[in-house]
Each structure stands twice: as C-alpha cells, then as structure tokens.
Design a protein around this nucleic acid. Structure first.
Lengths: 148, 148
DNA sequence: TTAGCTAGTTAGCTATGCTAACTGTATGGC
DNA sequence: GCCATACAGTTAGCATAGCTAACTAGCTAA
C-alpha cells in the first residue's frame, strides 16, 4: 500500500506541476520582443548555446524537419542574427553561427524573462526561495530523461 | 546588504527556474495526440473549463484577436469537439460549448501528460516529492500575478 | 428613425510546420 | 576510375495560426 499511496500522490503532484509549469512558461514566453518569433528565438538560442552546428544538427535539436530549419535560418540571416558558414570538408554541409547581434538578442531576452521572474520572486520569503531553488534542481533532474 | 543578497539570489533562482520550466513545458507539449494542434487544444481546454463562453471572451482568455478565434472554432467544430450556440438574448453573440468528445479529448491528454510526469516522479524519493508539492503551490502563487 | 457601437466573419498577409521532389556532393563496390 | 547509392540542403506546395483592415448584421440611444 506504500506503492499505492506513492502512485496516488505522484499523479496528484503531476497534475499540479503540469498546470503550474504550463502556465508559467506561457507567461515567460510573453516577455520576448516583437521582432523575433518563438521558433526563430528557439533556434537562435540553440545556435548561441552550441556556437556552431550544422543545419541537420539544428533540425534534430529543434525536433523539426530540414525544410523548416532552412526557412527559419533564412529569416535569422535576413535579420542579421545568424550566418550560414559552408563547410570546406564537405561541400554539402552548412554550419550556422550566431552574429554578435544574435548573441546580444538572446541575452537580452533571457535577462528580461529573468527580471520578470526575479521581480515576482522578491515577494517570496527567503525560506520559500530556498525551497524553490531545491525544486528547480529537482525539475532539472526530471527533465534529464532521455526521451519519452 | 540583506537586500542585495536577496536580489542576487532572486535573479540566479529566476534563471534556474526559467530554464527548467521552459524545458519541462516543451516536453509536456509533446504528449498530445497528432489530431489536434496546440492552439486548438489550448482553446478547447478553456472551453471545457468554462463550459460556456462567448467567442469574444475566449479571444480575451487566449490573448488572441477575434479572427483567430473564428478559425480555431471552425476547426474544432469540424472535428466535432465544440459547437457554436447562438445567443437568443443578442443575436450578434455566439457561445461555444464543448461536445462530449471535446471533454473526453481534453481529459485524455491531461491524463497522458500527468501519466508521463507521474512516471518520472516515481523515481524520486518521498521527501523530494513532498518538496515538489510545496514548490508547485508556490509556483501557482507566482502565476497569480495580474499581468506583466 | 437613424447614427454609431459591438460581435463576429471574411480577405489577405506573414510565419511555421509538413511531405514530396529536386540539386549537388560524397562514397563504396566493382 | 566509374557508377549507383546515400546524404545535406533547398524548393514547391499544402495546412494552420497569428495579424490588420474591411465588412455584415444586430443592438442602442439620441
């Protein structure tokens, strides 16, 4: 019955967590400037983090088909946020790299979202923040799941 | 300096939380069936929760312009998940209501996402789950923010 | 009764996702 | 060395979702 109790509590907790996490992420998404779309930002963030990767690798990372990446990179290039760099090892391959403007933009948006969250968090007590800090580490462990 | 320390910790915590929450919500979004799109599901969830609301109210709730709602409801109607109900008070107004199939679908997807999360959560200790439970309540308080 | 507001729709644009089909490049078997 | 095959990326064409502008129909108040 320890098992039963565990399962019940896991599924109630799952429901609460799902609700809170989905809502909060929605709220955070609203704190992006208007001149970049969500999918462009998502791709650009990966490019900035990885510093240099091929279009195929990016497509896999974004869980998207190659034609979709082609067009997202087209718009990022037009906006001066990333550049294609042809490989000299294999002339079929193109790398993508962030431009300084691209790096700056990702950083700006992160700061803005962090600022929103931090502002809200300042209304919490030190104990509550400490609890959330431990929870954040647990959530990261929860995400580490390899697929499924 | 208590204030300074507080701010530093808030902004570090904000960063950790932002990362974990954005990633987890992405993971959860993947646990929807293929025959409904994210924006359709989002609208349908509101309709099921509210049970009956006007198109305008739904547009406000989804933070979207009226023409967008018109088309989302068109597709939900085509799929038999919701129905327009004209108001007899004011013949300009149309309500939306969920069909039984719509209610069932929302429930199924919730269960699926909860099941994924619950499965992951079962690998955590009872203490860790207790901590996450308290964190979930804190996150809900964090969301309660009226705008901004 | 008419002027103006309001609810929702239609039209037409951009962006993002897809599959199918194409181009150009690399590679392995013979 | 040559050719079949595989692979990286692009192009073309479709559906959905967001937007603004413009329209229709119905309500309301002077």
């Amino acid at each position: 019955m320890a098992t039963t109790d565990q399962r019940v509590r896991s599924s109630e907790l799952a429901s609460q967590l799902r609700f809170a996490v989905m809502r909060l992420s929605r709220r955070l998404r609203q704190h992006a400037p208007e001149d970049i779309t969500p999918s462009q930002l998502s791709a650009l963030s990966v490019i900035v983090r990885e510093e240099r990767l091929t279009l195929s690798q990016l497509a896999v990372a974004e869980r998207v088909q190659p034609p979709t990446i082609t067009r997202v990179i087209d718009s990022l290039e037009q906006k001066g946020l990333a550049t294609r760099v042809p490989s000299d090892q294999d002339r079929r391959v193109a790398f993508v790299e962030p431009t300084p403007a691209g790096r700056t933009l990702v950083d700006t948006i992160r700061r803005r979202r962090d600022a929103y969250l931090a502002r809200r968090l300042r209304t919490f007590s030190a104990e509550e923040r400490a609890l959330l800090e431990r929870a954040a580490r647990l959530l990261e462990r929860l995400i580490e799941d390899p697929e499924s």
